[in-house]
Amino acid sequence: MKMMTFNPANCRPVSQTNRPAMNIRKEDQAIELQFTVPGFRREDLNIRVEDNHLVITGTPPAEEVNGFVRREFRPLAFEKKFKLGDRVATDAIQAKVEDGILHVTIGLTEPIRREIAVA
């Protein structure tokens, strides 16, 4: 098991950003996007197609702010926008949130292949 090492040389200031970390996985017929969204529930996330863009927004739940003696994280509102390519089947976009990871699967259509006959 890889343990965390308490080596000050490895320390970096961790900045605050309202950009979830993202993984992209590509398969033949689909692209899967994964985002880290701990603290967001299903109803706090919104995924829509707008103007040929995929728009993902997160609105964190209201929370009790009292009593913190140490605070290293806080769910922040975010918005991510992606331009959709020609091969994206907009009706084949699926999303699920599981254990603080949002998975968005985008179905792809076959690449359009045209043969142009030489007249």
């Binding site: 965390m4 490895n10 970096r12 200031p13 961790v14 900045s15 605050q16 950003t17 309202n18 950009r19 979830p20 970390a21 880290t36 969204v37 701990p38 603290g39 009292n66 009593g67 913190f68 003696v69 140490r70 605070r71 290293e72 994280f73 806080r74 769910p75 922040l76 975010f78």
Partner: peptide, 20 residues
């Protein structure tokens, strides 16, 4: 500085903690 819930480079090796 507060660590974002979305993480920096150390996010997954040093998880952020809140204490109430």
């Amino acid at each position: 500085a507060m660590t974002s819930v979305f993480g920096g480079e150390d996010f997954f090796t040093t998880p952020a903690v809140n204490v109430k």
